[in-house]
Design a protein around this nucleic acid. Structure first.
Length: 349
DNA sequence: CTAGGGTTAG
């Protein structure tokens, strides 16, 4: 085996380091840093490899800058740097995220024309794109076609997208059946259990969700923080707080730590029931564990106080969140507006 | 040596 790395020019490894640095960094400057690095890259001589471009593009896509990524790819093309399957798959995903599945399929056609065979990721991305566009029926059709024509061997991602789509469209039972079908094959579900369990909870079939949870555990599939959070949410929504509390203890016992999301579910549930006091206690508990309340935590609390007409308390929470440099959003303000309206109505009586 | 899926607030 030859050692390619040693033969790369120094500048290339420097570039790789900067990409790596961007990957681990964070903050608002990150997007600009990535774009600046991209500009520098394109001005280099010799031009960067498509691999390096794809790496940087992946970062830009992770920052949800889909249209930026697409226009950058356009520039890359115009510079005469040839595209590859990875680049096209990334572009397809960008179009799908921008709700332009049709363009995604157009790129599929380009792949065929250029004699590149699409791969599993290409199809996964397109199926997921159809699901994102609420075209679940077409997603299922494409999935079936790929199976029947043996165009690819579905993996976790493909099953995941179709199962997710079926759940979103309210066909939880169909999703459940597909999960069972998946289990019968070589591709073992993990995340897919979570999707179906959450959907069963949202469909008010909490007991079925609990049953599926038991099933997965018996099969040796480990429930994670998302599984437990979904179940806790389901139980809380139907007044089964005692069981939710037991579930919280159960997860801790299994070594799964509740996350900010788990606590947010509890905080919101207490607030909706009108017991903001308990919600505040839950917030204290999460802080004690070193978890930082976020915009969702504070918004849920604000809504809780507003529902009770305690607008002064809501304002205190708002001040508290601004002190923590958290930015209230449209949902936060909506609760406050509702709170003010409520107060006004009561005042008029 | 780069692409794709699951949980929370109005």
């Amino acid at each position: 085996m030859n050692c390619t790395r040693n033969r790369l020019p120094a500048s290339t490894s420097h570039l790789n380091q900067r990409i790596l640095h961007l990957k681990n960094g964070s903050g608002p400057t990150k997007v600009n840093d990535a774009l600046q690095l991209f500009d520098e890259m394109l001005q280099r001589q010799p031009p960067p490899s498509i691999i390096q471009i794809n790496q940087l593009m992946t970062l830009i896509v992770k920052m949800k800058q889909y249209s930026t990524a697409l226009s950058l790819f356009k520039r890359v093309n115009m510079m005469g740097i040839p595209s590859d399957l990875y680049a096209i798959n990334i572009s397809i995903n960008c179009h799908c995220r921008l709700n332009q599945v049709a363009y995604g399929f157009a790129l599929l056609a380009t792949l065929f024309k250029q004699g590149y065979p699409p791969d599993l990721t290409t199809y996964n991305t397109l199926i997921n794109g159809l699901v994102l566009a609420d075209r679940v029926f077409e997603a299922v059709e494409l999935f079936k076609k790929l199976l029947i024509e043996k165009l690819c061997d579905p993996d976790q991602f493909m099953y995941g997208s179709v199962i997710n789509g079926l759940c979103k469209a309210g066909h939880t039972i169909k999703a459940y059946e597909l999960l069972r079908y998946m289990e019968s094959g070589s591709c073992k579900p993990v995340v897919q259990y979570n999707t179906v369990i959450d959907s069963l909870c949202k469909d008010k079939m909490v007991d079925h969700a609990l049953q599926l949870f038991t099933n997965m555990t018996e099969k040796g599939v480990l429930a994670d923080v998302i599984t437990y959070s979904s179940l806790i949410q389901g139980l809380c929504n139907f007044g089964r707080e005692t069981e939710a509390a037991r579930m919280l203890m159960d997860m801790e016992g299994k070594g799964v730590s509740p996350s900010v999301v788990t606590f947010n579910i509890l905080v919101d549930s207490f607030c909706k029931k009108g017991s903001v006091k308990d919600a505040e206690l839950a917030v204290q508990a999460m802080v004690r564990r070193g978890l930082n309340p976020d915009v969702i935590t504070y918004s849920a609390l604000i809504d809780g106080y507003c529902l009770r007409g305690e607008i002064d308390e809501a304002e205190k929470v708002l001040d508290g969140m601004v002190e923590k440099e958290l930015v209230p959003n449209i949902i936060t303000y909506n609760s406050l507006i509702n709170g003010y309206c409520k107060k006004k109505r009561i005042g008029k009586r």
